[in-house]
């Protein structure tokens, strides 16, 4: 069963629109939503959570409509936004009381355990926390009610590599349970590469690619060649190219690379950058 199922999602704003987006988050999988700033990642997440109202299309969470039946599945969703949304005048202990009242499955022990693990003081004002501490607190709250689906919107952006690595470890631990799924958006592709099973590229409100990460590695390669050699490859097999004075670099479908041109494994970030540049 898909944790999230999006079909033909549309939402228009004055100068931007999400256009006919279809995307699944399969149960037990991690889907990484990649895109440059303003690509529509946060908008998609807000539409999933019904914080923005869709104009057409359907969104189902655990098989239930995200507008009419969202309240019945909220217990199973943990959400982390890019900014800490907690009242800055409160402390983590206060939050525990509030969430205990909000969630039926709230687990005090798990929450306290996460606070200790993340070295977060229970009685210090959230307002005095660093960005990394606030993010860890948000993740602790999202994980302490035994959610089956985590939705993270740019949760690792603006954090130092050590904290980002800590967060990735936590997510890997969460996903070790087969019932758990994650939808994580980021423009830091290297983070997503570490944990995602599927990668979804968004650009200007459109889904450019949605593929299993391993298949991306299998299907695409990077080549370095001359401009003439590049032109000899079928244009539809070239995903993106960069031609300079010293030759050309391109990402192409593996099966279409001539034997005399050496190919290298693709990395997701390069694929994303080339795809975006090719489309503009």
């Amino acid at each position: 069963m898909n944790a999230i199922e999006i079909k033909g999602l549309c939402k228009s704003f004055k100068d931007f629109k999400i256009d006919d987006l279809s995307l699944n988050v399969p149960g037990g999988c991690v889907v990484g939503l990649v895109g440059e700033n303003g690509a529509g990642k946060s908008t998609t997440i807000k539409l999933i959570l019904n914080l923005l109202r869709k104009q057409s299309g359907s969104i189902k969470i655990f098989g239930r409509d995200n507008v009419k039946e969202l309240d019945s599945v909220k217990e199973d969703i943990g959400v982390v936004f890019d900014e800490c949304c907690f009242p800055l005048e409160l402390n983590p202990k206060n939050l525990c009381s509030i969430f205990r009242a909000a969630y039926k499955n709230w687990d005090d022990e798990a929450y306290t355990g996460y606070l200790k693990k993340f070295e977060l003081p229970e009685k210090k004002k959230i307002g005095s926390f660093s960005r990394g501490m606030k993010m860890k607190l948000s993740i602790a709250a999202a994980l302490s009610h035994h959610a089956k689906l985590l939705v993270l919107d740019e949760a690792t952006s603006g954090l130092d590599p050590v904290v980002r690595d800590d967060i990735i470890d936590i997510l890997l631990e969460f996903i070790s349970d087969d019932e758990h799924s994650i939808l994580i958006s980021s423009h830091i592709v290297s983070d997503l590469e570490k944990i995602c099973d599927y990668i979804a590229f968004m650009h200007k409100g459109k889904l450019m690619l949605y593929e299993e990460k391993d298949k991306i590695y299998e299907q695409y390669v990077v080549i370095h060649c001359t401009e003439n050699e590049l032109n000899s490859i079928k244009p539809e097999a070239v995903i993106g190219r960069k031609v300079g004075t010293f030759g050309a670099e391109a990402i192409v479908l593996k099966d279409n690379v001539p034997k005399d041109i050496q190919s290298y494994p693709v990395d997701i970030e390069k694929l994303f950058v080339f795809m975006v540049k090719e489309s503009t």
Partner: peptide, 15 residues
């Protein structure tokens, strides 16, 4: 409470 986004977050909980 709009500044901290608390209401937005609250809507992702069963409230």
């Amino acid at each position: 409470e709009e500044t901290t986004g608390w209401n937005k977050f609250l809507l992702t909980t069963p409230v």
